[in-house]
Design a protein around this nucleic acid. Structure first.
Lengths: 109, 109
DNA sequence: TAACTAGATTGCTACACGGTCATTAAGTGT
DNA sequence: ACACTTAATGACCGTGTAGCAATCTAGTTA
């Protein structure tokens, strides 16, 4: 197990990575790539977002190492670097649900 | 296991939770509360951040359910709602390290 | 060569949000 | 009553960034 010391500068890096996932559009993009690699136009068609927009999100995700890319002719194929993104989402969803339960409990009192 | 369906509105909620952690100051606050509950002034002293600033961050973390609070006289004691925050940080740190390894590999080539 | 296409980049606007200062609210002690 | 302390809130400023339109680059095809 990794156990990096959580110094302020490490926290800044971690925060930066959280920020990369703090955008519905980017989560949507990542989810679209869950099964197979996708080109930019694929993602435009699937998400309905603009081309320039998608492209910028992908640059950010690539810079942070969340996705990899492979160029072939005119196309750039993007794919997930690893599956841990969904692990993170699962934890977030569990928290969402337990929050919802807690809220219902308060309302019922 | 939870397995909530990842509809666009769920993604928005998940993104919102990621955003709450996408701030070094808030991660620092959470880390300070790792061992024991803390008052606002405790956190001011430990982090060096301003009182109003800390207070606003705490409101946000409380609204998202990351922390709980307990009032006693003049003081408000904040504590972690659960430990899963650190689970998330650990995953992020692993990714940071594997990114760093990959970067070193590229530089060595 | 020119025309076409995929994707990256730039410039711009609008909005969200972090940080600070000042104020307010609530509780304590004299 | 008053002074004092903790914490929350409101106003303001500056920065960061999502989204879009337009442009540019690079690869393909005729």
């Amino acid at each position: 197990m990794a156990k990096t010391k959580l110094t302020p500068d490490v926290l800044a890096l971690v925060a930066q990575r959280f920020r990369a996932l703090a955008e519905p559009a980017r989560l949507q993009i990542l989810q679209s790539m869950r099964r197979k690699e996708m080109t930019v136009t694929d993602l435009v068609n699937e998400t309905g977002l603009g081309q320039a927009n998608i492209s910028k999100h992908l640059q950010l995700l690539y810079a942070q190492g969340f996705v990899t890319r492979r160029k072939d002719g005119l196309f750039t194929y993007y794919s997930l670097a690893d599956q841990s993104v969904f692990e993170l989402c699962d934890i977030m969803c569990s928290q969402l649900e337990s929050n919802a339960r807690a809220r219902r409990r308060v309302l019922a009192s």
